[in-house]
Protein backbone atom coordinates (compact mmCIF):
# COMPACT_ATOMS: atom_id res chain seq x y z
CA UNK A 1 0.00 0.00 0.00
CA UNK A 2 1.28 3.44 -0.91
CA UNK A 3 1.18 6.14 1.69
CA UNK A 4 -0.53 9.39 0.96
CA UNK A 5 2.01 11.96 -0.30
CA UNK A 6 3.14 14.51 2.22
CA UNK A 7 2.92 18.18 1.43
CA UNK A 8 6.63 18.26 0.57
CA UNK A 9 6.31 15.49 -1.99
CA UNK A 10 3.39 16.97 -3.88
CA UNK A 11 5.31 19.35 -6.19
CA UNK A 12 7.49 16.44 -7.31
CA UNK A 13 4.44 14.39 -8.18
CA UNK A 14 2.95 17.27 -10.10
CA UNK A 15 6.16 17.67 -12.06
CA UNK A 16 5.94 14.03 -13.05
CA UNK A 17 2.44 14.72 -14.31
CA UNK A 18 3.82 17.49 -16.46
CA UNK A 19 6.22 14.96 -17.98
CA UNK A 20 3.26 12.74 -18.60
CA UNK A 21 1.37 15.50 -20.38
CA UNK A 22 4.42 16.17 -22.50
CA UNK A 23 4.66 12.52 -23.45
CA UNK A 24 0.96 12.41 -24.26
CA UNK A 25 1.32 15.40 -26.54
CA UNK A 26 4.40 13.96 -28.25
CA UNK A 27 2.57 10.71 -28.94
CA UNK A 28 -0.42 12.57 -30.31
CA UNK A 29 1.85 14.53 -32.64
CA UNK A 30 3.60 11.35 -33.80
CA UNK A 31 0.25 9.71 -34.57
CA UNK A 32 -0.91 12.76 -36.51
CA UNK A 33 2.32 12.68 -38.53
CA UNK A 34 1.69 9.03 -39.41
CA UNK A 35 -1.87 9.84 -40.45
CA UNK A 36 -0.54 12.60 -42.69
CA UNK A 37 1.42 10.06 -44.77
CA UNK A 38 -1.83 9.09 -46.46
CA UNK A 39 -2.43 12.67 -47.52
CA UNK A 40 1.19 12.94 -48.66
CA UNK A 41 0.74 9.81 -50.79
CA UNK A 42 -2.16 11.37 -52.64
CA UNK A 43 -0.19 14.57 -53.14
CA UNK A 44 2.80 12.50 -54.29
CA UNK A 45 0.71 10.62 -56.84
CA UNK A 46 -0.82 13.77 -58.26
CA UNK A 47 2.44 15.75 -58.32
CA UNK A 48 4.58 12.99 -59.82
CA UNK A 49 2.00 12.23 -62.51
CA UNK A 50 1.35 15.91 -63.24
CA UNK A 51 5.04 16.87 -63.43
CA UNK A 52 5.99 14.31 -66.07
CA UNK A 53 2.70 14.70 -67.91
CA UNK A 54 3.25 18.45 -68.27
CA UNK A 55 6.72 17.73 -69.66
CA UNK A 56 5.15 15.29 -72.10
CA UNK A 57 2.64 17.86 -73.31
CA UNK A 58 5.53 20.28 -73.75
CA UNK A 59 6.69 18.02 -76.58
CA UNK A 60 3.42 16.60 -77.86
CA UNK A 61 0.40 18.85 -78.39
CA UNK A 62 -2.41 17.90 -76.02
CA UNK A 63 -4.85 18.13 -78.94
CA UNK A 64 -2.99 15.34 -80.78
CA UNK A 65 -3.16 13.16 -77.65
CA UNK A 66 -6.95 13.36 -77.59
CA UNK A 67 -7.76 13.55 -81.32
CA UNK A 68 -5.31 11.29 -83.18
CA UNK A 69 -6.37 7.68 -83.62
CA UNK A 70 -2.95 6.06 -83.83
CA UNK A 71 -0.52 5.25 -81.01
CA UNK A 72 2.97 4.60 -82.36
CA UNK A 73 5.51 6.18 -79.96
CA UNK A 74 8.03 3.41 -80.67
CA UNK A 75 7.92 3.74 -84.47
CA UNK A 76 9.98 6.15 -86.56
CA UNK A 77 6.83 8.11 -87.41
CA UNK A 78 5.53 8.81 -83.93
CA UNK A 79 1.81 9.29 -83.35
CA UNK A 80 0.40 9.97 -79.90
CA UNK A 81 -3.34 9.40 -80.10
CA UNK A 82 -4.40 7.73 -76.85
CA UNK A 83 -7.68 6.28 -78.20
CA UNK A 84 -6.30 2.86 -79.24
CA UNK A 85 -5.20 2.30 -75.63
CA UNK A 86 -8.45 3.67 -74.18
CA UNK A 87 -10.60 1.59 -76.52
CA UNK A 88 -8.72 -1.57 -75.50
CA UNK A 89 -9.24 -0.76 -71.82
CA UNK A 90 -12.94 -0.10 -72.45
CA UNK A 91 -13.29 -3.35 -74.42
CA UNK A 92 -11.63 -5.64 -71.85
CA UNK A 93 -13.46 -3.93 -68.96
CA UNK A 94 -16.81 -4.22 -70.76
CA UNK A 95 -16.29 -7.96 -71.32
CA UNK A 96 -15.32 -8.38 -67.67
CA UNK A 97 -18.44 -6.54 -66.45
CA UNK A 98 -20.66 -8.46 -68.86
CA UNK A 99 -19.65 -11.59 -66.97
CA UNK A 100 -19.15 -10.28 -63.44
CA UNK A 101 -22.29 -8.13 -63.05
CA UNK A 102 -24.96 -10.78 -63.77
CA UNK A 103 -23.07 -13.62 -62.06
CA UNK A 104 -22.06 -11.44 -59.11
CA UNK A 105 -25.52 -9.95 -58.58
CA UNK A 106 -27.32 -13.30 -58.85
CA UNK A 107 -24.82 -14.77 -56.40
CA UNK A 108 -25.36 -11.80 -54.06
CA UNK A 109 -29.16 -12.11 -54.12
CA UNK A 110 -28.88 -15.86 -53.64
CA UNK A 111 -26.48 -15.55 -50.70
CA UNK A 112 -28.45 -12.77 -49.03
CA UNK A 113 -32.06 -13.85 -49.62
CA UNK A 114 -32.12 -17.57 -50.43
CA UNK A 115 -29.17 -19.32 -48.81
CA UNK A 116 -29.31 -20.47 -45.21
CA UNK A 117 -26.97 -18.79 -42.75
CA UNK A 118 -24.77 -21.88 -42.75
CA UNK A 119 -24.45 -22.00 -46.55
CA UNK A 120 -23.75 -18.27 -46.69
CA UNK A 121 -20.99 -18.44 -44.08
CA UNK A 122 -19.44 -21.25 -46.13
CA UNK A 123 -19.79 -19.78 -49.64
CA UNK A 124 -18.96 -16.14 -49.04
CA UNK A 125 -15.38 -16.65 -47.80
CA UNK A 126 -14.85 -19.27 -50.51
CA UNK A 127 -15.84 -16.77 -53.18
CA UNK A 128 -13.58 -14.18 -51.59
CA UNK A 129 -10.62 -16.52 -52.15
CA UNK A 130 -11.08 -15.70 -55.84
CA UNK A 131 -10.30 -12.07 -55.08
CA UNK A 132 -7.12 -13.04 -53.22
CA UNK A 133 -5.50 -14.85 -56.14
CA UNK A 134 -2.65 -12.67 -57.52
CA UNK A 135 -3.48 -11.13 -60.88
CA UNK A 136 -0.32 -12.52 -62.49
CA UNK A 137 -1.75 -15.97 -61.78
CA UNK A 138 -5.00 -15.01 -63.52
CA UNK A 139 -2.94 -13.80 -66.48
CA UNK A 140 -1.25 -17.19 -66.69
CA UNK A 141 -4.67 -18.87 -66.48
CA UNK A 142 -6.09 -16.70 -69.27
CA UNK A 143 -3.17 -17.30 -71.62
CA UNK A 144 -2.53 -21.00 -71.06
CA UNK A 145 -6.01 -22.36 -70.26
CA UNK A 146 -8.86 -20.07 -71.28
CA UNK A 147 -7.49 -18.94 -74.66
CA UNK A 148 -6.76 -22.50 -75.94
CA UNK A 149 -10.19 -23.55 -74.61
CA UNK A 150 -12.04 -20.68 -76.32
CA UNK A 151 -10.14 -21.25 -79.57
CA UNK A 152 -12.20 -24.42 -79.90
CA UNK A 153 -15.41 -22.34 -80.11
CA UNK A 154 -14.45 -18.94 -81.45
CA UNK A 155 -13.07 -19.00 -84.99
CA UNK A 156 -10.18 -16.63 -85.63
CA UNK A 157 -9.30 -16.16 -81.95
CA UNK A 158 -5.62 -15.29 -81.77
CA UNK A 159 -3.20 -16.23 -78.98
CA UNK A 160 -3.52 -12.75 -77.49
CA UNK A 161 -7.06 -11.36 -77.41
CA UNK A 162 -9.44 -9.20 -75.42
CA UNK A 163 -12.02 -11.96 -74.99
CA UNK A 164 -10.17 -14.33 -72.68
CA UNK A 165 -8.42 -11.51 -70.83
CA UNK A 166 -11.81 -9.86 -70.22
CA UNK A 167 -13.40 -13.17 -69.26
CA UNK A 168 -10.77 -13.98 -66.64
CA UNK A 169 -10.87 -10.41 -65.36
CA UNK A 170 -14.62 -10.94 -64.98
CA UNK A 171 -14.00 -14.06 -62.88
CA UNK A 172 -11.61 -12.03 -60.73
CA UNK A 173 -14.15 -9.27 -59.98
CA UNK A 174 -17.16 -11.56 -59.38
CA UNK A 175 -16.39 -11.68 -55.63
CA UNK A 176 -16.08 -7.89 -55.53
CA UNK A 177 -19.58 -7.43 -56.99
CA UNK A 178 -21.03 -10.35 -55.01
CA UNK A 179 -19.53 -9.41 -51.67
CA UNK A 180 -20.29 -5.66 -51.73
CA UNK A 181 -23.79 -6.17 -53.14
CA UNK A 182 -24.49 -8.87 -50.58
CA UNK A 183 -23.50 -6.45 -47.83
CA UNK A 184 -25.92 -3.87 -49.25
CA UNK A 185 -28.76 -6.40 -49.55
CA UNK A 186 -28.21 -7.78 -46.04
CA UNK A 187 -28.33 -4.25 -44.63
CA UNK A 188 -31.97 -3.82 -45.75
CA UNK A 189 -34.10 -4.05 -42.59
CA UNK A 190 -36.00 -7.30 -42.00
CA UNK A 191 -39.22 -5.33 -41.44
CA UNK A 192 -39.39 -4.55 -45.16
CA UNK A 193 -39.23 -8.24 -45.99
CA UNK A 194 -41.81 -9.07 -43.33
CA UNK A 195 -44.13 -6.43 -44.72
CA UNK A 196 -43.86 -7.86 -48.22
CA UNK A 197 -44.41 -11.43 -47.01
CA UNK A 198 -47.48 -10.28 -45.12
CA UNK A 199 -48.89 -8.95 -48.38
CA UNK A 200 -48.49 -12.44 -49.87
CA UNK A 201 -45.30 -11.95 -51.88
CA UNK A 202 -43.14 -14.97 -52.63
CA UNK A 203 -39.49 -15.12 -51.69
CA UNK A 204 -38.44 -14.28 -55.26
CA UNK A 205 -40.73 -11.23 -55.30
CA UNK A 206 -39.45 -10.04 -51.95
CA UNK A 207 -35.88 -10.38 -53.15
CA UNK A 208 -36.25 -8.73 -56.55
CA UNK A 209 -38.99 -6.14 -55.94
CA UNK A 210 -38.46 -5.08 -52.35
CA UNK A 211 -34.93 -5.84 -51.13
CA UNK A 212 -33.06 -5.23 -54.39
CA UNK A 213 -34.58 -1.78 -55.07
CA UNK A 214 -33.98 -0.81 -51.44
CA UNK A 215 -30.30 -1.72 -51.74
CA UNK A 216 -29.79 -0.24 -55.21
CA UNK A 217 -27.31 2.44 -54.14
CA UNK A 218 -24.93 -0.15 -52.67
CA UNK A 219 -25.37 -2.40 -55.69
CA UNK A 220 -24.55 0.39 -58.17
CA UNK A 221 -21.56 1.45 -56.07
CA UNK A 222 -20.26 -2.13 -56.16
CA UNK A 223 -20.56 -2.20 -59.95
CA UNK A 224 -18.72 1.11 -60.33
CA UNK A 225 -15.94 -0.12 -58.04
CA UNK A 226 -15.72 -3.33 -60.09
CA UNK A 227 -15.42 -1.25 -63.26
CA UNK A 228 -12.72 0.88 -61.69
CA UNK A 229 -10.83 -2.29 -60.71
CA UNK A 230 -11.15 -3.66 -64.26
CA UNK A 231 -9.88 -0.42 -65.81
CA UNK A 232 -6.81 -0.39 -63.56
CA UNK A 233 -6.12 -4.11 -63.83
CA UNK A 234 -2.71 -4.70 -65.36
CA UNK A 235 -1.20 -8.16 -65.34
CA UNK A 236 -4.10 -10.09 -66.90
CA UNK A 237 -4.27 -7.79 -69.92
CA UNK A 238 -0.48 -7.43 -70.20
CA UNK A 239 -0.12 -11.22 -70.38
CA UNK A 240 -3.21 -12.31 -72.29
CA UNK A 241 -4.56 -9.37 -74.34
CA UNK A 242 -1.40 -8.51 -76.26
CA UNK A 243 0.73 -5.43 -76.85
CA UNK A 244 -0.67 -4.28 -80.15
CA UNK A 245 -2.13 -0.76 -79.93
CA UNK A 246 -4.87 -0.70 -82.57
CA UNK A 247 -8.23 1.02 -82.46
CA UNK A 248 -10.52 -2.00 -82.64
CA UNK A 249 -13.48 -3.43 -80.77
CA UNK A 250 -12.94 -6.93 -82.17
CA UNK A 251 -12.52 -9.14 -79.07
CA UNK A 252 -10.58 -11.78 -81.03
CA UNK A 253 -7.47 -9.82 -82.01
CA UNK A 254 -4.47 -8.63 -79.98
CA UNK A 255 -4.86 -5.11 -78.58
CA UNK A 256 -3.07 -3.07 -75.93
CA UNK A 257 -4.68 -1.49 -72.88
CA UNK A 258 -3.36 1.61 -71.11
CA UNK A 259 -1.94 -0.50 -68.29
CA UNK A 260 -0.34 -3.02 -70.67
CA UNK A 261 1.40 -0.15 -72.46
CA UNK A 262 2.93 1.08 -69.19
CA UNK A 263 4.19 -2.47 -68.57
CA UNK A 264 5.61 -2.73 -72.09
CA UNK A 265 7.62 0.49 -71.75
CA UNK A 266 8.75 -0.36 -68.21
CA UNK A 267 10.14 -3.70 -69.38
CA UNK A 268 12.25 -2.08 -72.08
CA UNK A 269 15.38 -0.02 -71.51
CA UNK A 270 13.75 3.37 -71.80
CA UNK A 271 16.19 6.18 -71.00
CA UNK A 272 15.07 8.47 -68.20
CA UNK A 273 13.47 11.67 -69.47
CA UNK A 274 13.07 10.45 -73.07
CA UNK A 275 9.79 11.00 -74.83
CA UNK A 276 8.74 7.33 -74.53
CA UNK A 277 9.56 7.50 -70.79
CA UNK A 278 7.22 10.47 -70.51
CA UNK A 279 4.41 8.70 -72.39
CA UNK A 280 3.81 6.28 -69.53
CA UNK A 281 3.05 9.22 -67.24
CA UNK A 282 0.64 10.75 -69.73
CA UNK A 283 -1.11 7.37 -70.02
CA UNK A 284 -0.88 6.90 -66.24
CA UNK A 285 -2.52 10.28 -65.64
CA UNK A 286 -5.36 9.36 -68.00
CA UNK A 287 -5.80 6.08 -66.11
CA UNK A 288 -5.67 7.77 -62.71
CA UNK A 289 -8.19 10.38 -63.80
CA UNK A 290 -10.62 7.72 -65.07
CA UNK A 291 -10.44 5.57 -61.93
CA UNK A 292 -10.59 8.65 -59.69
CA UNK A 293 -13.82 9.77 -61.38
CA UNK A 294 -15.33 6.34 -60.89
CA UNK A 295 -14.36 6.17 -57.22
CA UNK A 296 -15.87 9.61 -56.59
CA UNK A 297 -18.98 8.59 -58.52
CA UNK A 298 -19.44 5.50 -56.36
CA UNK A 299 -19.18 7.55 -53.15
CA UNK A 300 -21.68 9.99 -54.57
CA UNK A 301 -24.14 7.27 -55.59
CA UNK A 302 -24.05 5.78 -52.10
CA UNK A 303 -24.69 9.17 -50.50
CA UNK A 304 -27.25 10.42 -52.99
CA UNK A 305 -29.36 7.33 -53.47
CA UNK A 306 -29.13 5.60 -50.15
CA UNK A 307 -32.56 4.71 -48.80
CA UNK A 308 -32.59 5.17 -45.06
CA UNK A 309 -35.04 3.13 -43.02
CA UNK A 310 -35.10 3.81 -39.35
Amino acid sequence: MQQAPTAGELPKLLRRDRMRDLRERAIGAALLTAAAVGALTTAGIILSLAGETIRFFGQVPIVDFFTETEWTPLFSIQKFGVWPLVSATVLTSAIALLLAVPVGLIAAIYLSEFATLHVRSLFKPMLEVLAGVPTVVYGFFALTVITPFLQGFVPGLSTFNALSAGFVMGVMIIPLVASLSEDALSAVPVSLREGAYAMGATRFEVATRVVFPAAISGVIASIILALSRAVGETMIVAIAAGMNPILSFDPRVPIETMTAYIVQISLGDTPYGSLSYLTIFAVGSTLFFMTFLMNVLSFWVVRRFREVYD
Binding site: T42, I45, L49, G232, T291, F292
Partner: peptide, 15 residues
Protein backbone atom coordinates in the same frame (compact mmCIF):
# COMPACT_ATOMS: atom_id res chain seq x y z
CA UNK B 1 -7.73 6.79 -47.57
CA UNK B 2 -10.84 5.32 -49.15
CA UNK B 3 -9.80 6.92 -52.42
CA UNK B 4 -6.21 5.66 -52.18
CA UNK B 5 -7.55 2.12 -51.84
CA UNK B 6 -9.12 2.53 -55.28
CA UNK B 7 -5.99 3.78 -57.07
CA UNK B 8 -4.72 1.14 -59.54
CA UNK B 9 -1.54 -0.56 -58.34
CA UNK B 10 0.37 0.41 -61.48
CA UNK B 11 -0.13 4.09 -60.59
CA UNK B 12 1.67 3.39 -57.30
CA UNK B 13 4.43 2.01 -59.48
CA UNK B 14 4.67 5.33 -61.33
CA UNK B 15 4.74 7.14 -57.97
Amino acid sequence: IANLAGVPSIVYGLL
